[in-house]
Design a protein around this nucleic acid. Structure first.
Length: 301
DNA sequence: ACTACGCCCCGCGAATACCC
DNA sequence: GGGTATTCGCGGGGCGTAGT
């Protein structure tokens, strides 16, 4: 029995329904089963054709979803691959070599599909509820990444760290930092991370956070950032003509990297083409499988 | 016309301040 | 001390503008 869109939206709207990886897997499977038959249309992006948009029927107010990268998003048949293979592969992440493209693609695409299933479902909410959807989607992505790190046996949580601001040997006040990822090995904080579904105009803050936090705390803790993607829907002159536009700011990223401090790992599920071609970008930005397969373990000592 | 960028909007929820 | 109001930081869509 296929889950109704109304039911899917209700599930996705309540964060209590996502407390374990299996909750995400289950929801994803149900959403893709629905999408296989329940959509009004799949609209192809006019400028980057690997992107598409799902359009709902009247049960979803004929809303058009966020852009979905068809090279990364599994369909209903593919969702069975996630269920059978994703966790098994993820648990072996540390031993997956760089050239095992198949395993790495499975990790990357599974994370993307798990999250976009939630995002796309929330896009069915009526207009006035869209901000609600934005908040929930971001929170659930943070939670998913944490759950995946924990699944690998690594201590990871979110929380507030209060850094003392000291002038002339006297603590004037404390500055609160809310971190999405606090990664510990043997009890010690070894990396701090930021998780966002897109960098948008909040990219600068991540660089600033590393700079100021390490300065205040007088440490040199690595800071990483995890992003789902950096595209948004673009509406064109003609109605019903959809495209995507990039929200990543390469000038800012490179400026902060070169002149302030580079981040210690930046990971995307849906990486932009310029992150593979620009020499500065490609040396600092990688696909998300690199975090789980390689970089996470380098923070240990 | 397109890209890069700056900025605003609305709303959520945790933390904090306030009040009885 | 416990409950309520307010503050604060954040998430994500989208628009305006300047430069090319």
């Amino acid at each position: 029995m296929r889950t109704s869109l109304k039911k899917l939206v209700a599930i996705a709207s309540d964060k209590n329904n996502f407390t374990s990886i299996s909750d995400y897997l289950d929801f994803c499977g149900r959403f893709l089963e629905f999408a296989a038959r329940g959509l009004q249309a799949v609209i192809i992006s006019q400028n980057e054709s690997q992107y598409c948009f799902y359009q709902y029927k009247n049960d979803g107010h004929f809303n058009v979803t966020r852009p979905i990268n068809s090279h990364l998003m599994y369909d209903a048949a593919g969702s069975r691959v996630i269920k059978s293979g994703f966790l098994k592969t993820l648990r072996q992440a540390r031993d997956i070599p760089v050239d095992d493209a198949k395993s790495r693609q499975l990790i990357r695409n599974s994370i993307y599909t798990l999250q976009q299933s939630i995002g796309a479902a929330l896009d069915a909410l009526p207009a006035g509820k869209s901000n609600n959807a934005r908040k929930i989607n971001g929170d659930l992505f943070e939670r998913l990444i944490r759950l995946l790190v924990v699944e690998l046996g690594v201590d990871c949580e979110s929380g507030v760290i209060r850094a003392p601001v000291v002038v002339d040997g006297e603590e004037l006040f404390r500055m609160s930092y809310q971190h999405d990822l606090i990664i510990r090995f043997q009890g010690g904080v070894k990396a701090i991370g930021s998780v966002k579904t897109s960098s948008k105009d909040r990219l600068d803050k991540i660089f600033m956070d590393k700079f100021l936090y390490n300065r205040l705390a007088e440490t040199d803790i690595p800071h990483i950032a995890v992003f789902l993607n950096d595209v948004q829907r673009k509406k064109t002159r003609q109605e019903n003509n959809f495209g995507v536009s990039a929200t990543f700011l390469p000038g800012h990223f490179k400026g902060y990297t070169v002149k302030l401090n580079p981040l210690d790992g930046v990971y995307y599920c849906d990486i932009r083409p310029n992150m593979r071609t620009d020499s500065i970008l490609k040396s600092h930005i990688h696909t998300i499988d690199h975090l789980f397969c390689t970089d996470l373990w380098s923070f240990q000592q």
